[in-house]
C-alpha cells in the first residue's frame, strides 16, 4: 500500500474534465487506486466516484494504491492533480 497527500491546486477543483483526466490515468494501471477527501473515499477508476468526491480547489486529498506498480500509479495520479489540469490555479 502506497499513499500520498496532495492539495487540489486549481480554482474549480475536480469537476468533470479533471475527473476524466484522473480516471484516464488510473485505468492504465492494474492495481486498485483510491482518492480520499475529508468527506469520502472513492475508486479512482470510476468517473462517477471521482466526480461525486467533488473536491473543491484547496482541498487536501490522499491518493493511495495497492497492488502491482502501486508506486507508479500513485505518482501518476498525484502528478495530474498537481498539474492543476491545465486550468487556472488558486
Amino acid at each position: 500500500m502506497t499513499e500520498e497527500m496532495v492539495t487540489v491546486p486549481n480554482k474549480l477543483g475536480i469537476h468533470a474534465r479533471p475527473a476524466a483526466l484522473i480516471v484516464r490515468a488510473a485505468v492504465e494501471f492494474d492495481c486498485d487506486i483510491w482518492v480520499k477527501s475529508p468527506a469520502d473515499k472513492v475508486n479512482a477508476k470510476s468517473i462517477m466516484g471521482v466526480m461525486t468526491l467533488a473536491a473543491s480547489g484547496g482541498t487536501a486529498v490522499t491518493v493511495s494504491a495497492d497492488g502491482k506498480e502501486e508506486r507508479e500509479a500513485v505518482d501518476a495520479v498525484v502528478e495530474i492533480i498537481k498539474s492543476g489540469f491545465g486550468e487556472e490555479m488558486i
Binding site: 474534465r17 476524466a20 484516464r24 477508476k45 470510476s46 468517473i47 466516484g49
Partner: peptide, 16 residues
C-alpha cells in the same frame, strides 16, 4: 471529443 470521452468513461465506470 472531450464530451464523447466523458460519456465513454461513464459507460465503462466500474461503480456503475
Amino acid at each position: 471529443r472531450q464530451i464523447l470521452e466523458f460519456l465513454l468513461l461513464l459507460l465503462q465506470d466500474p461503480m456503475i
